[in-house]
Each structure stands twice: as C-alpha cells, then as structure tokens.
C-alpha cells in the first residue's frame, strides 16, 4: 500500500464569482521512500494539494469529493484531534520560502521546541541535543538558534524551517515551493539539503515546484498538473519521452545543460478559467496539436509505458509531437490559429 493515496480528489474554492474547482478528480500515489515532484504553472492546483494533505486549506477552500489516505487513514475525514496527532510527527512541511513561516515574536529555538513539546515530552537536555543535531544537519551555527526570525536571511530561515520539519523525524515531508524567491546559489543549497533528507534518512517526500529542472535533478518520480488535472505521471521517462504536449512545452521552457544551443520556448497564452473550465481537454486551447475531438471530449489517463501514464487523445502520435514541439514555430502557430 502506498504511503499517501490521493483518490479522485476534488477541491473547491468558494469565491465571489462562483465556485472554482482547483483540483479535479485527481488520483496519485506516493510510495514509501519515494521522492515525488509535482510540477505545474501557478494556479494549477499543486499547492492546493499540499495544503489539503496538511489540512491547512484556506477558509473558503474544501475537499468536495474524493479522499486523501495516509497509511490508509483518511485525512479529510479525520477530526482535528486525530489530524493534530499526525501532524509534524508523521507529516511535516517546509513552507514556501516567500512565506514568513516563523512567528516573528518568538526565537527560532522556541518555535522548534514548541513543535516538539506539542507532540512528545522530552527533557530540556533532549531538546537541546536534538536542535544541535538539526542545526548541524542543515548547516546553521548553533548559537543562532536564539535569534529571532528577522535576524535570519531568507536562505537561513529556510534552513531553519527544514530543521524544524525534521525535528520529530517524520516519515513524510511536503516541501511547497521551498526555494521561490531565493537566489540561485542558495536555492541549490536548500534543494541539496532537502534531497539529503530523502537520500540519507529515507524519507518520503513531496516537492511542489514550477521548475522542471529542479524536479529532473532531484526527484525519483514526477507528476505534471495542468488546470487542476493530472496530465502526466511517471519516472524520468516523463522528461525523456513526454507523451503529453503540455509536458513537452514545459521541458522546452527550461534550459538543458546537455543541449546548450537549444532555444527556450514558452507556451503562449494562459490556462483556462477554473470557474468555467472547458469541456474537453483543458490544454486544447494552447495545444499546437489540438483536434476537434480534444475540444469535445476530456482525455483519460492511459498507460504509455511501465509506471508512466499520460492524458492525451493522441498518445500514439507522441513521437511526432515531440519532434514538432522543439520547433518554436509550432507553438507560435497555435497561438495565431486560436
């Protein structure tokens, strides 16, 4: 049984303009010890999934249908007390680096201690030793634990966040865009730490990002989301031989060290409005290969290889699409045609 099973999950946001379905009938498994990267554009629903797993959806958001099972136990159907027992002990998070994840009026150490004290009763000595270990692991000076969050740089804060997430040795860690807004070198250091959690301690990880290159470099498996739907899911073959035109587009948009001469191509136009999603394939409007069928009928996820699924009507033409997708004219043509 997978550690985390997401089953036909639908998440709605009530807005003044109507109800927006941010995640639509999404199913996804994360196996024990797996490092999964969930990629997609802003607003595709990837952070919403992270929030739903942790039970911290905003007030206007709710799981409308489906389920999230952690070790077979439903998270959305748990009471707050049951959820609070799982939180941080079994499921911890590294929040978006752009977020102010620490309470500004308490020291870093006080906040890590608070996480520990909420779940276990350790002596002061035990807690101190634990913070010694954690700070050594993330590469922070031990003396700085007494500092307040505002005395830390963005990168240091994120290291401290990783330390706090590790405090109770949880089995599953969700990192929601942990490096947005940090400079490239710090970004790399942080991602390296997070990967180490996985490689050294064998933790199951979910990394949410919009950066294809980050996932390619760090994760075992990758799930691509578009407009609330899962469009492709698999191991490294997702980059090597993508079957969904959106994944092909995403791969084009990031530089490839092996192919320095390649031009970066962005996908024209914006994702659909989730208040009134299109009937057919959600990507049809931006897809250079879209046919009449794509606008009428939503494609289902089909197996395209071992442990590799994609949701496209034309998976049998994927090889041809991959060739054409490398040409910038293909994408500009799609923009002009619509």
């Amino acid at each position: 049984m997978a550690l985390l099973q997401i089953r036909d999950l639908c998440i709605d946001y009530r807005t003044t303009a109507g109800t927006a379905r941010a995640v639509d009938k999404l199913s996804l498994d994360i196996e024990e010890g797996e490092y999964l990267g969930l990629v997609g554009e802003s607003g595709c629903g990837k952070s919403t999934i992270a929030k739903a797993v942790l039970g911290i959806l905003p007030r206007n958001g709710a799981v409308a249908e489906g389920d999230i099972l952690f070790r077979g136990r439903s998270l959305p159907h748990s009471s707050l007390q049951e959820l609070n027992r799982l939180r941080w002990r079994d499921i911890a998070m590294v929040p978006q680096s752009a977020m102010n994840g620490f309470d500004p009026v308490y020291t870093i150490e006080a906040q890590i201690n608070e996480a520990i004290d909420t779940h276990v009763s350790w002596s002061r000595e035990q807690k101190r030793k634990r913070i010694d270990e954690l700070f050594a692991f993330v590469g922070l000076e031990r003396g700085r634990a007494h500092d307040f969050p505002h005395q830390f740089s963005g990168g240091m804060r994120q290291r401290a966040m990783i330390a706090m997430a590790m405090a109770l040795d949880p089995g599953f860690i969700v990192a929601d865009e942990p490096t947005t807004g940090l400079d490239v070198i710090v970004q790399d250091q942080i991602l390296h730490r997070i990967k180490e959690i996985h490689t050294r301690f064998g933790k199951t990880m979910l990394l949410i990002t919009h950066d294809m290159a980050v996932v390619a470099e760090n994760c075992d498996r990758i799930a691509v989301m578009y407009a609330g739907k899962l469009v492709e899911h698999g191991a490294h073959n997702v980059f090597e031989t993508p079957f969904h035109p959106y994944t092909m587009g995403l791969c084009n948009a990031f530089p490839d060290l092996a192919d320095r001469g390649r031009e970066l191509i962005s996908i024209p136009k914006a994702p659909p409005n989730l208040l009134t999603p299109p009937v057919g394939c959600r990507f049809a409007d931006r897809c250079p290969f879209a046919a009449a069928r794509c606008r009428a009928e939503a494609p289902a996820l089909v197996e395209v290889g071992p442990g590799h699924v994609a949701a496209c009507h034309f998976i049998d033409r994927a090889a041809e699409f991959r060739m054409k997708a490398r040409d910038i004219g293909t994408w500009q043509g799609a923009a002009a045609a619509a």
Partner: peptide
C-alpha cells in the same frame, strides 16, 4: 492573513495555542 499561522496549524498545535500566537502578534 499571516503565513506563519498555516505552519502553526501544520505543526499540530491546538486552536487555542494558535489564537495565543495570533493575539501575541496583534497585541503589539
């Protein structure tokens, strides 16, 4: 609206303690 409240919730703190955190910040 502060982000740190989400983290406190994810830390498994009871509602009461979260209100204390929020109030402590609001008291300034």
């Amino acid at each position: 609206g502060s982000d740190f409240l989400d983290v406190l919730r994810a830390k498994g703190l009871p509602e009461r303690r979260i209100v204390v955190h929020a109030t402590r910040n609001a008291l300034l």
